[in-house]
Design a protein around this nucleic acid. Sequence first.
DNA 1: AGAACCGCCTGCTTGC
DNA 2: TGCAAGCAGGCGGTTC
Length: 257
Amino acid sequence: MPELPEVETLCRQLQIKICGEKVLATEIYDDKLASIKNIKGHEVTAVEREGKRIVIVLDNENAIYIHLRMTGRLLWQKDSVKPKYGRIRLTFPNGNIFLDDPRRFATVEVLKKMDNDPSKDIFKAFDLKSFLGRHACRKTSVKTLIMDKNAVEGIGNIYACEILHRVSINPERPAASLTKADWIKFFKAAKVVLEKSITKRGTSISDWQDLYGRKGENQHELKVYGQEGKCCSQCGGIIRRIKQGGRSTYYCPKCQK
DNA sequence: AGAACCGCCTGCTTGC
DNA sequence: TGCAAGCAGGCGGTTC
């Protein structure tokens, strides 16, 4: 499932491939996406990331906003043979982009290009002061809070578990019990974990692939996610899995107090 | 207002 | 072996 590092990987690959290129044609295979228009004949001027969204900016003040949700995947193909779960195709002079998405959760919208507020994105102008003021007093668990995109954009289940393990914070602790120093430590670790994953082209735990259908390498770096019953690499404790808000949380009860 | 839960979806795994 | 139930979960919407 694509989170910030996976989306960032795609954006970087798209930038190289389609910036300055014109959209020659589009084809929609899924009625859920039928509202795509004002694309054909326009040139891509930039590819940006907003949280987990991919923003393909066009020369007509519009942009294609793509959110891959759970199982969405963008694939670059020279030929125009629809992949098995293809939902949309964008054709460029040098090849095609397909959205391949078995569960059909992904969204594609063409909207007026908006100036995004990057204050929730830890890779942009993340605003710690505003975060502390608005969210550090919340009663919900720290894990649930950091996955709330109104608080922090880009962290999903896998990286939430990994970052909390890195800073030895128990995922069930109420967010309000963390000190300012804890949060500073947390965001520092978040950057390290996410940046490392970007250099590894993401985490291919189930079916993540980059634009060229290649797997990432970050799954080999995971310390707790999907490691239930295994030994903690930091302290030798046994990794546990619990449910928080219907989602699996993996952590080490010995070193994450 | 904040917190918890639901529905969207379908391929894969599990259990009888 | 076969089929149904359960699971995966980001996020917008609804409810309490």
